[in-house]
């Protein structure tokens, strides 16, 4: 009996991946995400080169006006890898929603089909089932992130004028590895709420509310910037202005909980646009992923498989 357990474990992992590949909603979001990934490099590069050209046109205009003291090009010294910084925003938005859908659907589809009592008559322990589910989700996320890396590298190769520095592709890989950690947090949140919530729609909205808090509310409270400020990569790379006592206190108290900012800090560090301690942020992010995965595993372990049969 115990000799068959690994194959059931593998079946759960395989089932996780194959059913996900059949989910039309997931495929739609994935298609949007991949399309945005492809275009984001061109958008970043086009914006950078146009701004450089605008600087030169501005210098010519100011010189013609008789201005002699003209400030240096503000883009000089900015990491060329920051042409990928739009990806950070797409990962914050579409990536997180995609991860929530993966985590949410992973459990909801089995709950809705009422197959859980059947799964547990097979020779698989609750712990192994949870392990297989989490492994399946992580494999799906890893596949998406590496595909995204490949699309980014491929689209960068399409722009001959874009020359990445030595080690640029390795740094980009580091950026996507950090992104995988961020996505794992939201996938685990999606899974957690799909287990503890009775209603399917509420189970989907709860992680979305967590995402809204992480991406819009906490950054606003800790920096005093507008709610959508985190969606502008330039705002992310700029120093946060001194905003007085309230924001200093809010920054100290709430920053450790601001998952969106922890991610942007650690991911921008990989692209050479450091704002604060990116390694410390990455460790904090890893700790949150650990907590979210632990909470999901605990909720799954305590889940009564017959609960939904009587609803």
């Amino acid at each position: 009996m115990s000799a068959r357990a690994p194959s059931v474990f593998a079946s759960v992992v395989r089932h996780e991946l194959t059913t996900l590949a059949r989910e039309k909603t997931f495929l739609l979001l994935l298609a949007i995400f991949m399309a945005m990934t492809f275009f984001s490099v061109y958008i970043g590069w086009s914006t950078r080169t146009t701004t450089e050209a605008i600087y030169h046109a501005s210098v010519a205009y100011l010189a013609a006006q008789g201005v002699t003291s003209i400030v240096a090009d503000p883009l000089t010294g900015v990491s060329p890898l920051l042409v990928f910084d739009n990806m950070l925003v797409y990962l914050l938005l579409i990536g997180a929603l995609l991860a929530i859908v993966i985590g949410h659907r992973s459990f909801i589809r089995e709950r809705a089909a009422g197959v859980l009592p059947l799964v547990f008559v097979r020779p698989i322990s609750r712990a192994r089932y949870i392990g297989a589910k989490l492994l399946g989700i992580l494999l799906a996320l890893t596949g998406i992130v590496f595909a995204t890396y490949a699309v980014s590298a491929f689209s960068a190769a399409f722009i001959p004028a874009l020359r990445l520095p030595a080690g640029g592709y390795a740094a980009l890989l580091g950026f996507y590895a950090v992104s995988l950690v961020y996505l794992a947090f939201f996938a685990a949140a999606g899974l957690f709420f799909s287990v503890i919530m009775k209603n399917e729609s509420t189970a989907l909205f709860m992680p979305i509310l967590v995402w809204v808090a992480a991406v819009f509310i906490l950054p606003e409270l800790t920096t005093g910037q507008n709610p959508v400020a985190l969606l502008n990569p330039v705002t992310l790379t700029g120093a946060i202005p001194d905003q007085g006592l309230f924001f200093t206190a809010a920054h100290r108290l709430l920053s450790p909980f601001s998952v969106g900012q922890l991610y942007t800090r650690s991911a921008l560090g990989m692209l050479g646009g450091g704002i604060g301690n990116s390694i410390a942020s990455l460790f904090a992010l890893l700790a949150y992923v650990g907590v979210a995965i632990g909470a999901s595993a605990f909720a799954l372990r305590r889940y009564a498989v017959t609960r939904d049969l009587y609803l």
Partner: peptide, 29 residues
């Protein structure tokens, strides 16, 4: 519902974000 969310994401967050980040005046804090 997910389709509505996906389109909301594209039209409320992504497209305006692209426009904002392409704005030359937004390239420097």
């Amino acid at each position: 519902l997910m389709l509505a969310f996906s389109l909301w994401l594209v039209f409320v967050l992504i497209i305006p974000q692209i426009g904002d980040t392409m704005d030359p005046d937004n390239q420097v804090p």
